[in-house]
């Protein structure tokens, strides 16, 4: 039963945070610097998220998983070659899966 409470509380807490940002008074965004800051926030948070998912997906310690990093590296290469979005993802997953299959 208590797992159910944790599941529902997590759902409600996450929802409250999403709603909080969306309904924050627009006045907050009147200052152009605040607006510029919020425009850059997705860049900052998503980059941090990519970094954490790449280097520490399972916990606090950094780990350098070769297939995962090679997968992301090949995603960068595909992006530099202007590959379409789904191709970028397919290449990244295939490289990681291939290297793991090869035992790296």
């Amino acid at each position: 039963m208590s797992v159910w409470i944790a599941v529902v509380a997590t759902g409600l807490g996450c929802y409250a945070l999403k709603l909080g940002g969306l309904v924050a008074p627009r006045r907050v965004l009147d200052d152009p610097r605040v607006r510029r800051f919020t425009e850059l926030i997705p860049v900052a948070l998503l980059t941090a998220l990519i970094t954490v998912q790449a280097l520490a997906p399972d916990g606090p310690s950094l780990e350098f998983d070769v297939p995962r990093l090679a997968g992301l590296g090949s995603a960068v290469a595909a992006l530099l070659l202007r590959a379409p979005f789904l191709v970028v993802l397919a290449v990244a997953a295939a490289v990681a899966a291939g290297l793991r299959l090869a035992g790296l």
């Binding site: 998912q53 992006l79 979005f85």
Partner: peptide, 15 residues
Amino acid sequence: GTFGLDVLGPAAFLA
């Protein structure tokens, strides 16, 4: 991870 699914999230955000 066998299928490289763990790379999909960060690769999508990167793209």
